[in-house]
Design a protein around this nucleic acid. Structure first.
Lengths: 349, 349
DNA sequence: CTGAAAGCGCTAACAA
DNA sequence: TTGTTAGCGCTTTCAG
């Protein structure tokens, strides 16, 4: 029951060699004969030796830990994101360390700066969190390798991999139009006019911009009544907004592009409450491609973003930065691809 | 751009005191005058000092890190679990460290024993993972504070907090019967007879046992045809099994208790594929109370387990163990409560 | 209340 | 190939 773990020295004396030799043997470092290495490994295994990470981190300044920061775990989109990103981090030989900010900027800051993961303990950061400008981020992490996910700043200070927000939104609206929709509504943060898109772009603003552009190109209306404003991008928010909309008269749409899957799912749920059928009365398309969309009735048509590509690109950038510590690489910005997955919620038949 | 963080010494010389004084000041340890402390804090803040955790862990042997190990992140049940548990860990002043095993026993083992989080780096472990017997677990963690979630062993070696599997299942079946169901089907791993329940209980076995007992008590049939066997507890598995069932003739049930919410959601989805209506033709009830159940059409009636209570009890046990390091406490086993949440999937009307 | 000394366990650099 | 030395940054202990 002794929790005082075995140390290198213990292994060394048991093996009749020096601590240094054991250290090399265990790390597969050069400078140890195969015979010695094997023997050391066996003995280490035998006495249950585990390397003390604190010590080695203290010495080497490298932990192999990559922080992954998101807003929240229990949301389909983030559940998928942390799954994919953790797996990618592991596949690259690092250890992922997840944290959720619960949308709190102060939590984010303390998460990033203070306590456990300040200077040394993490070798890099991957973040998708609201209230996270590249400036702020850079000020906190001080040049530590980092990649932001879907940070839409025009002049990126920190490298980021972004979703195909505009393109995807365009495709969604065009698809609805092709399926015969002429009164297309949008569910998103709020109605925006041209000039509103100029400053501080955000993923949802960009999706709105893409949708707006598509509508105008198609000669379809885009005005205040086009947008069903939601206070947040969760199912609950969409349910509230749609309920309110219907309460003020029948909904005027035959197609609905929801700026993410959660609001799409909420919208379908709320429409059902009022006996409005999807897709017969209204066709609905979402954005993200969360796994839950497949299992709903009706199943959800969506703009599926390529998460595997996301993970690959993030890790690529991160590893480059880690390899180049000291001489900082310029920040990059890469956009990933998407596919439109057709399901029941937009069926014509 | 210097990534070489400020050290205690830097702060010390800037403040004109010794490193020791700074250390005490920053940790709120006794032995420093308020005046000195304030000055030190200000200076530390000013030059952006962050304590090097590796060093302090190395010295003190305590990291404040609690490992949380689950099978998988992108599953509604686990998404909820990690949210609740992380929050509880944080609320208790510790830092949660999440890991997913992807149901691999070897991943689990290496996760627990080798590499990063072996001996020192984590102060405790919370785990909900398959292939995780208490014995195995204990062998790996060697008396480190730990709590297993829903480990149903009769003679717990490690403390655990378990779900109300039997009671909840009983309540689910009774509820269906009260709603008029006479041909109640169960969706779960496989058909089990009395003797099958004796050995190596698992959560799903216990739910099956509770359901069986309820059926027999009610004088309703329980035989091989009662159970729709699934290969796993995800939506996909349930979809496959229900499809196969329907392919072999109309389904003989007017009520369906699915041993978790994911299979319930899958079942409803598959039934819809065949034009079978829920709840008109078949009433469906699930188990767990994942957030997604609310948003489905029909919304899902379920046995909602009290996750907040779970989190509280887990942390309580863990903290007791941490406080008692050295003289091990006896393993405990506590069952949490549940409520039946009525929604559309079992409506009568 | 403050500080000097020692060492946690490991590994980079060098010496043998 | 192996071993020795030194020190990462912090905190425990004990002396001032």
């Amino acid at each position: 029951m002794k929790r005082s773990a075995a140390t290198l020295k213990d292994v060394a004396s048991a093996a009749g060699v020096s601590a240094m030799t054991v250290s090399k043997a265990l790390r597969n470092a050069p400078g140890v004969s195969d015979k010695t290495r094997e023997r050391v490994l066996a003995i280490a295994q035998n006495i249950g030796y585990e390397t003390n990470v604190s010590a080695s981190v203290l010495k080497t300044g490298r932990s192999g830990i990559i922080q992954i920061i998101v807003n929240e775990y229990d949301i389909p989109f983030y559940a998928k994101l942390i799954d994919v990103m953790s797996s990618a981090v592991v596949a690259n030989g690092f250890t992922p360390f997840l944290q959720q900010t619960k949308y709190s900027k102060s939590t984010l800051q303390s998460t990033l700066s203070s306590s456990l993961f300040s200077g040394v303990l993490s070798d890099g950061v991957i973040a998708h969190a609201s209230g996270l400008s590249g400036d702020l981020f850079e000020k906190i992490i001080h040049g530590k390798p980092a990649v932001l996910i879907d940070s839409c700043e025009e002049q990126p200070v920190v490298s980021s991999v972004v979703f195909p927000n505009e393109e995807g939104a365009r495709a969604a609206v065009q698809y609805l139009a092709e399926r015969g929709c002429r009164n297309i509504g949008l569910i998103g943060p709020s109605y925006l006019e041209k000039q509103d898109f100029l400053h501080s772009p955000s993923p949802m603003k960009l999706r709105m911009r893409g949708a707006r552009a598509a509508l105008l190109d198609l000669g379809l209306p885009y005005d205040e009544s086009t947008v069903v404003a939601v206070e947040g991008m969760s199912e609950e928010h969409a349910i509230d907004s749609v309920h309110e909309l219907v309460r003020n008269g029948r909904i005027p749409f035959d197609g609905l592009f929801c700026l993410n899957d959660s609001t799409a799912i909420g919208a379908i749920r709320a429409l059902a409450d009022h006996g409005i059928r999807v897709p017969e009365d209204v066709k609905v398309i979402g954005f993200d491609g969360v796994r839950e969309g497949r299992f709903h009735v009706p199943s959800l048509t969506t703009i599926n973003v390529d998460m595997d590509q996301l993970a690959r690109l993030v890790m690529l950038s991160l590893k480059q930065q880690i390899d180049h510590e000291g001489d900082p690489l310029p920040a990059t910005k890469t956009t990933i691809g998407f596919t439109l997955i057709e399901r029941e919620s937009t069926q014509t038949r």
